[in-house]
Nucleic acid binder design. Structure first.
Lengths: 342, 342
DNA sequence: GCCTCATATGGTAGCGCTACCATTTGTCTG
DNA sequence: CAGACAAATGGTAGCGCTACCATATGAGGC
């Protein structure tokens, strides 16, 4: 039962085939599919029957071309494997799974240049919305976002000057809170250990520093960082460096949980008692923080919710009712655990 | 300097604008961009200048519509947060970053039905290639893949009957190898602890079972599984269940490294000596396995390479030279560490 | 020098869909 | 009951690009 195929098309049914079979105009089929309310119930049923029988699926490319708008959410993250962004992306996917929107993820590798390139590529598709991680776009990237002609949500952080909308929390406050907690617990020589040191890590460091300075305990030698990407292995190594540099260290605030775990393992290996000799605090509160022995204090961030919230805001903006609250601060939560319970 | 904008377009330059500026036909611009070799050097330069000056970026939707082929790789994975798939996806991204291909990821949530739905959606775009995780597609999904009209690569596993191409390794062999290692190390009451129990986990379990039966040591009570998604916390709980069921347990092969880490932490907490009282082996060999205390034996899998290899094969097929080796087994590597060094 | 053939370029006609602007019909107002 | 107006449907003309089929030009064969 080969239906006559056009010169180039793959031979799959088009909207015209459906229209013919249902005995209506093509435009009515188009409407029945997109705005069912505007087509009478009768025709709607007929059309649905024709669609089912032919197995018609609209061509998103033709749709995008004709309507000058693709049903695509562009998402830009600096890393695919970092659990933090994976959670945000998961939230985005889950929120969009019942919508007609497809998702396109770009991996910027923490590079502003790469971000610009991807923005260019994404923009050429006329996406329905853009979600980008971070608030430190290059001037050129920022311009691309401003001219994207679609809702833009910056996620992971909050800041004073959104391109359009923002969902996140203050990394500075998160860092300060963790450091203050260590101070309250009685630790004095509290180091900061950080890898990658992207802008968010920098702000956590700044928060840590503010707390330490307020306590009159800041010392630059307490800081150990590297631009190298974060890993558990690296956490262990950095901790050894930190200890070598400052043997009287009695606490560490880690950039993230991978580092914290590495520190914990090194303590085990070197028979350093946690929390007695060394207090450890992490950041993000991955699942394993609560199970480790001892369990590790961490700053819980609401990553999945950042994703879902960003989508909700973008969807609202697409629907025409832009949320009046353009900057949403989802906050964080200090999870006090054994590793700082002196 | 507003250029006259057409009725609907966003006003961005089109190929016709470039053609006019360069004083050539539109089709020549199209060719210069896609097959530079077929356009004289002279025109090519002129066209490039016009492109740069106008800031022209081709519209991928129009391109896809006209050529009946979108420059998109569709990727289907069961989870976005599971590090294993994140690594594969990273490999795919890195291999495709310099190509014109965009990537579209679908999250099947380990559901065959969802996989079918996504295949339908992806298929409607006429992607350049499809990469799907696993070899256990539903009959309907398999049919969709066979009729996709593009190269298809099944990844993560190898099996006898590829839809088109395959890159992965034998989970059965991986499971057997881990169990055999524990046996060789002198462990006898070796449990299997697994979460999620997707098809790959099932095959690892089968491999474990084969090894145990060959040694005459298999006992169904050694097996502790749950359909619940894997986590470190869950590893700890399952280990407690396993111990309650069989207090004489002297080793465990864990479904994956998260579970293994949970087991290790529980051993610490319950003062069970590793590897003396209990031997632990994991699967996948995440970074932290080599740093933990004690370090944990694991089966290293080549996840990133699975991604890069899958792309390479798909790209070759697109270019017309289908690799003669349609099934690529990347194997695995047993990493012997302290946790099984009795 | 005629013919073939490869190379370089262009014109035309869509790809499958929807925006825009009719047209038709029925309903309500005064 | 004319006039106004909303609701339901359709026709036409593209969206921006490329497949296909010319056409023009020069190189090479005999």
């Amino acid at each position: 039962m080969t239906r006559p195929r056009s010169r180039r098309g793959g031979g799959r049914p088009t909207i015209a085939d459906v229209a013919r079979k249902a005995g209506v105009g093509a435009i009515t089929v188009s409407r029945a599919l997109r705005e069912p309310g505007r087509v009478s119930e009768d025709l709607r049923r007929q059309i649905q029957a024709a669609v089912d029988e032919l197995g018609y699926v609209p061509d998103p490319n033709a749709r995008a071309l004709a309507s000058a708008r693709a049903e695509v959410f562009g998402v830009l993250v600096p890393s695919l494997t970092n659990n933090v962004f994976a959670e945000v992306v998961r939230g985005i996917y889950d929120s969009l799974s019942d919508s007609p929107f497809r998702i396109q993820i770009g991996n910027t590798h923490y590079s502003g240049l790469e971000e610009e390139r991807l923005l260019q590529v994404f923009g050429s598709q006329r996406p329905a919305a853009l979600i980008v991680a971070g608030i430190d776009q290059t001037p050129s990237a920022r311009r691309l976002l401003e001219n994207a002609g679609c809702p833009v949500v910056q996620v992971m952080e909050t800041g004073p000057d959104p391109v359009d909308m923002m969902v996140g929390f203050s990394h500075f406050d998160g860092g300060r809170t963790a450091a203050e907690h260590l101070l309250e617990a009685g630790y004095r020589k509290i180091g900061f250990i950080g890898a990658r040191m992207d802008p968010r890590s920098q702000r956590r460091l700044a928060g840590y520093r503010a707390a330490m300075e307020a306590a009159g305990l800041f010392d630059p030698r307490l800081i150990t960082t590297t631009p190298v990407p974060s890993s558990v292995t690296l956490g262990r190594e950095l901790f050894r460096d930190a200890l070598a540099k400052m043997p009287t260290l009695d606490g560490v605030f880690c950039n993230n949980d991978d580092i914290a775990l590495g520190v914990l393992f090194e303590c085990h290996r070197a028979s350093i008692e946690v929390p007695k000799q060394i207090g450890i605090a992490g950041f993000n509160d991955l699942d394993m923080m609560q199970v480790s022995f001892p369990s590790i204090t961490s700053v819980r961030t609401h990553r999945y919710e950042i994703g879902t919230r960003a989508v909700a805001m973008a969807l609202a903006a697409i629907a025409g009712n832009r949320p009046e609250q353009r900057i949403v601060d989802l906050g964080f939560e200090l999870m006090r655990r054994e590793s700082t319970a002196r």
